[in-house]
């Protein structure tokens, strides 16, 4: 199968949806002439013109607000917020407006709006350009939160997000844009709300999303060399959350580690860990563990930045501890 990059997969999704549906348009900062800060919309202005690829002034609140208003009266906008950190400037429009309109107004209005943004470390972009804020949005009823890890999922999920009648926070990762992966040339979509087993295994489930899926996969590979079979489940969408797939996996492996780049404290991993423990406490062989970033303003210094977020070594270490601790308990009681 052909291989393309994550950013190209996203661009294909936008192009195909814009060709399919004349109501779809893109609005954001530097999405047109510049081609997007991370080059996702490159070439689309030339292809679709300035009425469908709209360069907006630096006004995050009205970018989301205008997209939302257009969505309410018949458009299918994709608003781009260059960095998720800048979504803080549009929080009223996202949280109080977009998320609320349908439910608050008794179902009279729909807000088929996609907010594309990106987050995370990897470029030494510092504390105001590297945060991982997905938990904020997942906590708001009425928002869907999608976080693709691969080019295949990025394309299929973006197409689904554009076709969805609800506001969708589509959170990409700045470290993934150059990642290559298999993407079929034929039309396909990936459903929102379905997790994906990226690697089957039996001894432990590594639950991750976005770039941490790749950390989990690398850790699983390393663990296999010491005889530990790790299953990697990519959550893919935080809201709605596919607990069924997570429960099925952990029921089988009896151990789980939740991994994300956002800080552990108050992070989305707590939601997953708590839900697993509420439902699977009796069969778990060890407490569910969480791995995430340190609770600090992210340093711009590249070497320090690397130390703040979890890596393969930490994942392997935690799994060894979980399995080792269990072995130790068994030998004590024997």
């Amino acid at each position: 199968m052909r291989r393309i990059r994550y950013r190209e997969a996203l661009r294909e999704a936008l192009r195909e949806e814009m060709q399919r549906d004349p109501r779809v348009f893109v609005i954001g900062e530097d999405v047109g002439r510049y081609g997007g800060a991370y080059a996702v919309t490159q070439g689309l202005l030339q292809e679709f013109g300035p009425k469908r690829i709209i360069d907006a002034p630096m006004s995050e609140a009205i970018i989301v607000g205008a997209a939302l208003g257009a969505a309410v009266v018949g458009g299918r906008p994709v608003a781009e917020i260059m960095y998720i950190d800048f979504a803080t400037l549009a929080m009223d429009q996202i949280v109080n407006q977009a998320a609320k309109l349908h439910g608050m107004f008794g179902g009279q209005l729909k807000a088929p709006l996609v907010i594309r943004t990106q987050q995370g470390t990897g470029r030494g972009a510092g504390p105001q350009h590297s945060q991982s804020l997905e938990a904020w949005f997942a906590h708001v009823p009425g928002l869907k939160v999608v976080m693709p890890a691969t080019p295949y999922d990025a394309k299929g999920l973006l197409k689904s997000a554009i076709r969805d009648d609800n506001p969708v926070m589509f959170i990409e990762h700045k470290g993934l844009y150059a990642l290559e992966g298999e993407v079929p040339e034929d039309e396909y979509t990936v459903p929102i709300g379905v997790a994906d087993v990226k690697r089957p295994g039996n001894n432990v489930t590594l639950i991750a999303y976005s770039n941490m899926v790749h950390t989990a996969l690398a850790a699983a590979q390393e663990l296999s060399q010491i005889g530990i079979s790790a299953e990697v489940v990519d959550v893919r969408t935080l809201a709605p959350l596919d607990m069924d797939t997570l429960i099925a996996s952990v029921t089988k492996t009896r151990r789980a580690v939740v991994i994300h780049e956002a800080s552990v404290f108050g992070g989305f991993g707590a939601e997953i860990a708590a839900s697993l423990q509420e439902r699977l406490f009796d069969i778990l062989a060890a407490p569910v563990r969480r791995l995430g970033g340190l609770h600090v303003p992210l340093p711009a210094h590249s070497q320090l930045e690397k130390q703040v977020v979890p890596g393969v070594t930490q994942v392997v270490q935690v799994v060894k501890e979980m399995i080792g601790a269990e072995v130790a308990v068994r030998s004590t009681s024997a």
């Binding site: 609140a61 205008a66 997209a67 208003g69 969505a71 009266v73 429009q93 407006q97």
Partner: peptide, 11 residues
């Protein structure tokens, strides 16, 4: 809601 109004006008 001024954002929503502006968006309706944009559309």
């Amino acid at each position: 809601h001024i954002g929503i109004a502006t968006g309706a006008a944009l559309w």
